[in-house]
Write a protein that binds this DNA or RNA. Sequence first.
RNA 1: GGCAGAUUGCCCGAGCGGCCAAUGGGAGCGGACUGUAAAUCCGUCGGGAAACCUUCCCAGGUUCGAAUCCUGGAUCUGCCA
Length: 421
Amino acid sequence: MSTVLDELTWRDLVAQTTDPDALAASLAAGPVTLYCGFDPTAPSLHVGHLVQVLTLKRFQDDGHRVIALVGGATGLIGDPKETAERNLNNKDLVGEWVGRIRAQIEPFLDFDGENAARMVNNLDWTAQLSTIDFLRDVGKHFPVNRMLARDAVNQRLNSDVGISYTEFSYVLLQSMDFLELHRRHGCSLQIGGSDQWGNITAGAELIRRVEQGKAHALTTNLLTKSDGTKFGKTESGTVWLDPSLTSPYAFFQFWVNTDDRDVVGYLKCLTFLPRERVEELEKATADRPGAREAQRTLAQELTTLVHGAAQTAAVEAASQALFGRGELTELDAATLAAALGELPTATVAELSTVAELMVATGLEKGNNAARRTIGEGGAYVNNVKVSDEAAVPSASDLLHGEWLVLRRGKRNLAAVRVVAP
RNA sequence: GGCAGAUUGCCCGAGCGGCCAAUGGGAGCGGACUGUAAAUCCGUCGGGAAACCUUCCCAGGUUCGAAUCCUGGAUCUGCCA
């Protein structure tokens, strides 16, 4: 019995596999070559991609040979969504995204040693392919009636938007990738999110038809949220891995705010913490939910994985300083400056009304909204509620002579720095 | 190609000449409770400090006055070719 499969199973990662016994036997028999694809649909991966990246790493840690594929070709076509046709992105832009996403995946895997990981781009074997060869060598193996049965395709056919031939063909490209990696590197397993089941099995079938080869599919459960909303989004949008799109502080906060009902599941799917530790945290959540130990651990683990230990220490310290029970006025200058450095900051020459300062930091999108918040009792300066919308903080309110901490509601913070011109 | 119907704020969806910045629900935001959680309840939810300005697919028109009526256009849906 394979250890990686056991591992994935107790972590509730496995959604579906082809022939579980044969897959287990093959994994137990020795190193297996497997791949997972990532399409460049944005300049960065987001937290939803982490499951896949980390699952690849789990396989590599177990001695298997993993391939990370970045879809320079498939990203130009677009996997059909159930709702609507995608907008085609410009080729240069997709090319740039390929580079950025490669760089994001690389740190998670080990590219040296016996079972070194590989990074490939499917544009390498599709760019030169002629239409005639494509239709003869690949297209011939795809019964359209089978393609029509695919979930996303079927939904689109029954909707007003329809589906373009371009997106309809997507599955052929992804299947070709699996075949190509099977030929080049003996790849016999493809993993992906559960929404990829159709694309993956189509590839496995292509390998069987063309090469009479045996290939497997394994899909992971998609992360869900107990409140029914989509995982990986906040009020301000997608949570990205790229620190210039989502600050490490915001990334950390995202995990700290995880629902009690979801946190144990995330610890299983998204961290490398051993089973005993996860069970300990599960018990801690049940016994002392207010302490939020599981959330804190989750945030630490993931921020460290994505942004490194040093960055994690910094944002955690900031988070403690800003959300701790301690008085802001008691923080020393260095701690305060470091903590506030993680927040959106407005630098101003002189103080204006609280409402205006909130707009300047981006905490509020307009004066009206800022005034409303103040009226509702949701605005704070240095943790003190502000009730007068016309109030202007005085120089004596400044922490260490230059800082002001603004807060909207419970957890939206920003800093104002006053610098004499 | 012909006929019928639709198009409203982030989403869904009422309104069908003045009382409409536009009912209601969802999402979002703030408060109470709590734990930087959930649920619940309360409030808020185009812009503007205000006078007031810009909105109900687009362009014209009728009218003292239009989201509401008329004309033309665009897009979507259904039925018939």
